[in-house]
Amino acid sequence: MDVHKVLVVEDSPTMRQLIVFALKRIRGLKIAEASDGVDGLKKLSAETFDLILTDINMPIMDGLKLVSMVRNDPKYKEVPIVVITTEGAVEDRERALSLGANEYITKPIQTTTILDTVKRLLPL
């Protein structure tokens, strides 16, 4: 079985753990965690990931900046990015998608939605 690497970028340890716990239900995933955008970029430069899940509102570097920087990196040009956020306004969604996010999921967290999205974006 192929192993797919997923990076979860979320500042809240509770939510991070919740997302990771949910993702563990999908076989063949290797999950790494980052607490903000800068931490996320560090992890992305150290190894290659097949999917990125990121929050928007985070200290140091927010999720939108991260999406923008990742998309400008040729290494991650095609890697799917999923934004998980409390920001539910249409303009927030459009902004994230225009920056290069593939999916935009709003909180409160629905485990089924996250799992379905990841399964759809990864060749599992």
Binding site: S12, P13, T14, M15, Q17, L18, F21, T86, K107, P108, I109
Partner: peptide, 27 residues
């Protein structure tokens, strides 16, 4: 399970309040 695990992972009053806030927002 995750929420209660986090709630009982600390005895710091402020941290507990912060965890409650995160749970109410996100869950």
């Amino acid at each position: 399970y995750i929420a209660s695990f986090q709630l009982h992972s600390t005895l710091d009053f402020k941290e507990v309040l912060q965890i409650i806030v995160e749970i109410v927002i996100n869950l």
